[in-house]
Design a binder for these strands. Structure first.
Lengths: 190, 190
DNA sequence: GTCTATAAGATGATAGAC
DNA sequence: GTCTATCATCTTATAGAC
């Protein structure tokens, strides 16, 4: 999707609202107020709220792909890669007690368009596939140990991180997330 | 809270809506339609939506306490207790792809009254404390093994189960939950 | 592109009849 | 206890001026 600065700013604000309040707890007016525009101007860029949601998921999916590619490029050790992965989640909750956008939309998924829901699943698949690959790399290199399939272990890791954010949010205590994430990765030690 | 049949039915419907759509994605009218009453009648029992939410959390907290007491009474083996615990979550997602009420409200927590948010945390504390106790029982009896504090292990288990529900929901596939739950408990084997 | 104006419907909530 | 009627406000969205 071709995007200019204004659209990007609108999505920034919308994403923050999704992460803190959820898709059904903010209005176009909330966005308009924060970007200091009228609601009609928001609709100029995103005709409907559903359009905005689709753009949001799509952009975040791409951003996450870029972040994971960056980790692959900068980091060699598979265990360190997993730590970086977990830290992406941790830094999110540390910055204003935000939930993962995908995790929040998963909660709202019954109220999303089928199309948005599908891209949400594809986004989770991306995360799971990256984890699966890193786990296999680590097992092959002899630096990571886990039982069973890498696919299932990846799914396990993703579920735990999402759940740890969800619960920690309620306490507004990022420390709760950290304790769980540390335990999660500790399990994988050789 | 003293409750009659009508109030109980209203809360049943409201809870199902919370679990599937989230607190901010259903209206008093949605409840009224399903119980075949007018919105004003709903307000007769629960003056505000926030009142209804408080009653919902409070009732579910008590119900969960009863379920856990039932497990304690019927089951001796700590590992089996944990399996029963996980099955409470599994049966929830199997019944209409529902999220845990506490987990869903955790996502919505930024939009809840402070009082509701506090009881939500207390509800999570209940779950965590029960898990902690069972873990200690199991370790003492030599049938459960885990590293570190029981408190942190309990927190880890709760996070994973909530996250597994959240992600599985998006795929409408309870099998995804089961795979994660099985792995979660498999770790505790002696 | 951004605005004003406005529509049509939803929403939470209340007053008062029965 | 349930209803009708009504309210003020919010919400998403559109038309048309500038």
């Amino acid at each position: 999707m071709l995007m200019n600065q204004t659209m990007s700013t609108i999505l920034d604000v919308a994403q923050e609202l999704v992460q803190t309040r959820g898709y059904n707890a903010f209005s176009i007016k909330d966005i308009a107020n924060r970007v200091e525009m009228r609601t009609s101007s928001i609709h100029y860029y995103f005709p409907t709220k559903a359009d905005l949601c689709r753009a949001l998921i799509s952009r975040h999916r791409q951003r996450v792909a870029d972040v994971l590619a960056g980790i692959d490029q900068k980091v060699g050790d598979p265990r360190t890669k997993l730590e970086r992965f977990a830290y992406v989640f941790q830094s999110t909750i540390e910055a204003g007690n935000r939930m993962c956008p995908f995790g929040m939309l998963a909660a709202d998924s019954d109220t999303l368009e089928p199309e948005s829901c599908e891209e949400l699943r594809a986004s989770f698949d991306d995360l799971e596939n990256w984890l699966k690959r890193v786990l296999l790399e680590g097992r092959k290199a002899g630096v990571i140990a886990f039982a069973g399939s890498a696919q299932h272990e990846a799914r396990f890791i993703l579920s735990t991180l999402e759940g740890a954010m969800l619960v920690a949010r309620t306490y507004k205590d990022p420390g709760r997330f950290e304790v769980v994430a540390r335990r999660l990765l500790g399990r994988l030690k050789k």
